[in-house]
């Protein structure tokens, strides 16, 4: 047997490594990694741990991002050389693909986690008021705290905190600014002009012709408020007097 053959044998029998091989090493070295991904808001930094995506911020100054990360998470985050499953999933999600991205919210308080978990359920093309989210998270009186929790969302876009707006259907604040929030929502199909018209006429709910009534921000019901079968409603009493039942998607009133 020649040395060349042995070398070929050596090369042909090299092992592959598991996809999370590097991630496990980094975790034990107390290092996180981040990459640059494209999103609706342009390039963003996406940082991840072995648990999931831990942070998302608009790309810009790497050093500023790393400093922010170190301060907030108490761990160093360095620019990744290659993707792994978590960062690839985040990349796909930000491109608009329907994939599940693991998220690491271990740095958040239990209340923040609860708020973000419920915010994550709001689907594209929809928006909900802060008070609604407070109610869903089981803290109906904590509207302001809900706003603060969303403001601390470590992974905007991946957890769509931009889908939470004011009760009067105005856009409200956002980590990346109100203009970015409005742009995102409009791209997703939220019709602010229609919402404003509905609000101006004093409608808090919209009946949808199938016996249910919705929040104006449930899909595109606001746009149809004057269409046959639809009906603007000023109050819950209004809805009840017509015999409408609450929509099970937007849950306009507490269950």
């Amino acid at each position: 047997m020649s040395e060349t053959n042995l070398r070929d044998f050596g090369a042909a029998t090299r092992r592959s490594v598991a996809p999370d091989f590097t991630a496990k090493i980094f975790s034990r070295c107390n290092l996180d990694r981040y990459t640059v991904a494209q999103s609706s808001l342009g390039d963003v930094y996406v940082a991840w741990t072995p648990t999931g995506v831990s942070a998302l911020r608009l790309a810009g100054d790497e050093h500023a991002f790393e400093a922010w990360y170190g301060e907030r998470f108490g761990r160093r985050c360095v620019r990744a050389v290659e993707d792994d499953r978590t960062s690839s999933a985040a990349r796909a999600k930000l491109r608009g693909e329907n994939v599940t991205v693991p998220i690491d919210l271990s740095e958040c308080s239990p209340f923040e986690r609860r708020v973000l978990k419920h915010a994550a359920k709001i689907t594209r093309g929809n928006a909900r008021p802060y008070g609604w989210l407070a109610r869903e998270a089981g803290m109906p009186d904590a509207t302001r705290a809900v706003g603060n929790a969303l403001g601390r969302n470590p992974v905007p876009l991946l957890i769509p905190c931009h889908r939470i707006i004011r009760t009067d259907n105005s856009v409200g604040g956002y980590i990346f600014g109100s203009d970015a929030k409005r742009t995102l929502l409009e791209e997703e199909g939220v019709d602010f002009a229609a919402l404003e018209r509905v609000a101006r006429r004093g409608f808090r709910y919209v009946a949808c012709g199938d016996g249910t009534f919705c929040l104006p921000t449930c899909g595109n019901v606001a746009k149809h408020v004057d269409s046959p079968g639809y009906l603007g409603l000023r109050s819950l009493e209004d809805a009840h007097s017509h015999g409408f039942v609450p929509c099970t998607t937007c849950r306009p009133i507490a269950a």
């Binding site: 090299r14 490594v17 091989f21 590097t22 070295c29 160093r76 360095v78 990744a80 050389v81």
Partner: peptide, 20 residues
């Protein structure tokens, strides 16, 4: 910290194979 991943990538297959 910044260069460490390159070290892992450069040698992981060799090291896993050698250890195996």
């Amino acid at each position: 910290d910044r260069a460490f991943e390159r070290l892992v990538i450069a040698y992981r297959v060799r090291i896993v194979t050698f250890v195996a």
